[in-house]
Every structure is written in structure tokens, then in C-alpha cells.
Design a protein around this nucleic acid. Sequence first.
DNA 1: GGTGAATCTGACATTGATGTCAGATTTCGA
DNA 2: TCGAAATCTGACATCAATGTCAGATTCACC
Lengths: 129, 129
Amino acid sequence: MRIGELARRTGVSERSLRYYEKQGLLAADRTLGGHRDFPERAVDRVILIQELFAAGLHSAKIAELLPCMRDADGGPNEVATPRLVTELTEERDRINRMIADLIRSRGVLDEVIETASGRPAPDEEHHHA
Amino acid sequence: MRIGELARRTGVSERSLRYYEKQGLLAADRTLGGHRDFPERAVDRVILIQELFAAGLHSAKIAELLPCMRDADGGPNEVATPRLVTELTEERDRINRMIADLIRSRGVLDEVIETASGRPAPDEEHHHA
DNA sequence: GGTGAATCTGACATTGATGTCAGATTTCGA
DNA sequence: TCGAAATCTGACATCAATGTCAGATTCACC
């Protein structure tokens, strides 16, 4: 599919999609005229990339990580090097700390909201993390 | 206390502390010569500010939020306006989405780590959120 | 009073993903 | 084949917190 459709279906701007390709996060064929032609699976990949960005990973690390993921059609293309495993473990720890921080911050907001609105904040599901 | 001690005790750079003051997040007296003199409670406040930054709130919103917090010595100085409550509720929703995303990203990392190392990722405590 | 450490202000740089714009080229239906 | 829509490349801008540096001033202690 072309870049416009991919942008529409993922909600990610064309600008960012081109950036992802340049960073090696996304592969695309080219038409004779030079236009990008993305495979169907690019949709899921873009969504995944966005999630990893949201988790604070940099594009370089995502580029290393992606080939080590279990593909829809089978196992990973590559196996993570020990160095990468170490780095990803650090990232995971960082994410865990971030989650803990976010939960605390949410508590702060809840308190202010509750104080101001006079009624308790919604007692959420508190999903098992 | 002076800015150097505050920086040391909070782990936040002097540069950032001055920035916080300029943004109205932090109040400091001044010595006759113009040096900042922070109260003891500035320590907790700086830590709180950092948490809110980590949660993705911008300094302007934090500046609105802080006066509405329950102080160590009593109730809040101000009561949040309905507009602020609305905005903070949106922030909380955003934080909730962010937490959900982080948990998913952590799952991605766990999978790669597990695949590469051959043994399962540590089954963490999964604290009640 | 002198001196070294601490602090002050103000300016400019950095980061990294994304926005935006201009001009050229390709695509594809009519 | 014509023309409008889509896409291309490359460059420059943006955001917001923080780093860094220079030169001036103040503080605290001897």
C-alpha cells in the first residue's frame, strides 16, 4: 500500500513514516517511479513502533529490537545479542520505574481532582499490572 | 537553604531549579546580595515537580496545579477551577493510557529477552495499581 | 580586607521526533 | 494524453527541559 493509506490506517503522519523508513524501522519496496510500497504488515509494525516510542525507546534501539521479535509468520529473524539483552533489560527496568512514577502522579491528580470536585475520583479497575 | 544544597539533596541540577523558580513552580527568598534562599519544604516540592514532569505534565499546568494541593500544614491554598479540573482529568486519562501502553511495551521487551536468554523473564510482583 | 567557593544573570546549544513548506516528479482515472 | 491528486526529496522550524559557558557579584571564613 502507499504511504497515504498507511498514514490513514495508523494515524501516523507521512512525515513520520518516511522518518521510520530512514531510521531502518520500516521497509518499503519502491515503484518504478520511486514511490514507497508498503506491505500489509506495515500497519501492525507502525503501531508497535509508536508504542515503543511512547515507552521512551530511541529509534536506534528499536531498530535493533525489531528483527528479534517473533514474526506473525514464525520465529524471530535474529536472536538478540547478549549486549542487546542487557540493554533491553535496563529499558524494562526503566519502564517499571516509569510505571511506578505514573501511578504516583495519578494519585496526585486524583487528590486535587477529588478535593476540587468534592466527590471521590472514580475507583478504577486497577488492572493487574 | 541555598541552591547548591537543594540541588544536592534532590539530585536536580541548579540550572533546573532556577528554571522551576522562573516558571513559578518554586518560591525562594533572596538574601541581601540576591542569592536564593529556599525553605526546607522545597525538597519535597522539587521531587514532586519531577514526578509530574515525568508524567508528562507541562510546567504551566504544574504551576496551576501546585497551589491546589493539600499542604503539609493544612489544606490547599486555592481550589481548582472547573476548567483546571477538566484538564487534570484529561491528564489522568492520558496517564492511564500511558500506563497501559507501557505495560504492553514491557511485554514486548520481555518476549525478546525471554527468547534470547532461553529462560522466562522474572515474574515480578505485579503490584496492585 | 582578602580570597576562594558559591551564586547570579543571560545567552546559546542540545535532543529527537515531528510539523511544514517548496519545488519537482509520479500516478492514475477520464 | 491531460490534469488533478499523490508522492518524492531536502531543508528548516518547533517544543520544552536541560546542559553549558562567560563574566560579574556575593558569601563565608581567615
